[in-house]
Every structure is written in structure tokens, then in C-alpha cells.
Write a protein that binds this DNA or RNA. Structure first.
Lengths: 154, 154
DNA sequence: TGAAGGTTGTTGACGTGTCACTAAACATGT
DNA sequence: ACATGTTTAGTGACACGTCAACAACCTTCA
């Protein structure tokens, strides 16, 4: 921990650039989503898997796992989303602890309205800006970074 | 807007991977920072420029501009940080609207304690994981993405 | 059976960021 | 000098995520 290895100029640029760009991209995406379709990024992330599963039902546990979210966070959000009529919470038949989350027609409608604009945003601000090589580099960088964080999110 | 261009499998992987990795990295970095030095990422971001300016004074406006933050966000955070004794808010001599933010000895101490561990985190979880080429690709990707968001954060 | 330990979801308190609004001070042009 | 518009900062209400604690349920194994 002694003798700190400071970042040189190039590294500072890479690091700050990455931080700013990723944060700004996500923030802009969220704002765009809210403006165009009254859905936050988190709500979109929940509705997307629900709308893909044939019956529109997913267990809360699985949602949390695939989103990589805290149970508490999901619980709070699901309660708010139910209040907004985007989904329903039902007790799971196979496990009395469990919670089945079911998308409502309103929820399905909301995400179907949101999806085109959202995808267009991702295309124009992300994919259209990057060469194929950059996309590949980004993917491999993402994998490697995730790998060091997965174990115990140190 | 009609005829939505869905993402293919490769693109979905790139996009989700990037989102997850960048979010996870920032979140982990924040937690690490809080655990090791009782500073949030936002607080670190404010103290860093303050500690670099010779007299430890920066105008709130300039802080906000260089961090790319909302005035309101900065105002709330500065109030909390002053309450914690990390900095002081003084009215700016040259512009009566302005606010001079001055780092306190406690603030300087806090960031000097935090910096080594923080840099080590950035090294081990970011730079050490990436080849030079990947770093360059990331930097250029960041620049291009930022460029499309700067104008009016659409 | 029953005790111990793990899983699943909820809650309340809290820190933080966003939004819309306000207020004060500056800048500009007449 | 004055009116107008802009810049700068602060405020209160609100939405959201985190944390620690909790309750209900399942599993396992003796």
C-alpha cells in the first residue's frame, strides 16, 4: 500500500474517459427512457425478461439473480411497479417463500412502446459509434473486468 | 421508429456485458472506497481536484463543470461534506453569487489516506486486466460515445 | 420428530441524486 | 439609471438503492 503507483497522463485519460462515458451513457439512456415512455432503466430491465417469458411470469429470485441485484432493491422496485400497475405479485405455487412476478397488459404495453426508441438510442449512441474491433475489445475488456469482481465484489 | 432493429446475439452480449461491467466496477469501487476510507465515490471526486489546487480552493461552478454535475447535486453534497468537516464553503470574493470551496486539513487527510488504496483498486481491477490495445480501444470508444452525448445529452 | 442452518422476500431508516422552483447577483442594452 | 435576461447557488419534495434486521419457509440430518 506504500509507495503509491500514481496514474500517468495516458492512464488518467483512459480511466476518466471510461468513467465519464459509461456513466453519461447510462444516465442519458435512463433520461431518454423516462422521457419517451415513463419507464426508468430499472423498470425496463425488469419488464424486459418478463415480456420474453411465454406466460409473462418469472420468480423474483430468478429476476434478481439474472439482473445481479440485491433482494431488497428488487422488492422495493416491484412494490412500486405493482402500485403503478405494471405487474402483479403473486405467491409462488411451488415454494411458499417465493414470489411470482407477472407482467400486466399495461406493463406489456409500456415496454412494447418503449423498446423501439430504446433500441434506437443504443444503436445511435453506442453501436453506430464503434468499429467492430472496438466492440470486440469492449466485450473482452468487460469480461475480464467482471471476472475480477464476481468472486466477492471487492 | 417503426420496424425496430433488434440486437442480434453478438450485439446483446457486447451491450449487456458493457453495461454490467461498467456498473459493477463503479459500484465495487464505491463500496471499496467507503469501506477503506469512509469516502463515497462522489466525495472522492470532489476532494481530488480540491487537493490538487495549490491553495485548496475551487469555485463551486468550476467543480460542477469539470465533474459534469448538476448544480443541485453539488450543492447538496457540499452541504453534507461541510457538515462532516471535509471542506468549508466561503463566499467568493470576486463574484458575490459564487461559492469558494476550500478543503480542510481533515479533508486533505481523508483523501490522502484514501488515494493509495483507491489507485490500487483501479490498477488491479482495471488496468491490470486490459492489454494496451484494449485500453486504447476503450479510450477511443469513450471519446466517440461522449461526443454523441455532449451536445444535449439526448 | 425436531433442531440447525440456509433461502427467500419484506421492512424501515438512511444517504443520495433529480426535478422544479426560488433568490440573489451579474451582464447587457437602451 | 433601469429593465431584461443570464448565471450561480440553495431548497424541499420525491424516487431510488443500500444496509441491517427480521419473518417465514425450506432442507437436511440425526
Amino acid at each position: 500500500m506504500e509507495n503509491t503507483q500514481w496514474l500517468d497522463e495516458r492512464e488518467t485519460g483512459v480511466w476518466r474517459g471510461f468513467l465519464e462515458a459509461s456513466q453519461l451513457l447510462v444516465a442519458s439512456m435512463d433520461r431518454h427512457l423516462v422521457r419517451e415512455s415513463q419507464l426508468s432503466g430499472a423498470e425496463y430491465a425488469v419488464l424486459a425478461p418478463l415480456s420474453e417469458h411465454a406466460d409473462g411470469v418469472v420468480r423474483a429470485r430468478d429476476l434478481g439473480k439474472s439482473l445481479g441485484w440485491d433482494r431488497s432493491r428488487l422488492s422495493h422496485l416491484l412494490k412500486r411497479m405493482e402500485a403503478r400497475g405494471l405487474l402483479e405479485r403473486k405467491n409462488c405455487s411451488s415454494d411458499a417463500r417465493g414470489l411470482d412476478v407477472e407482467i400486466t397488459p399495461a406493463g406489456r404495453n409500456a415496454i412494447e412502446l418503449a423498446a423501439p426508441g430504446h433500441l434506437e438510442f443504443v444503436r445511435t449512441h453506442f453501436f453506430d459509434q464503434l468499429t467492430r474491433d472496438e466492440q470486440d475489445a469492449l466485450a473482452s475488456a468487460s469480461r475480464k473486468i467482471m471476472a475480477t469482481l464476481q468472486p466477492e465484489c471487492d
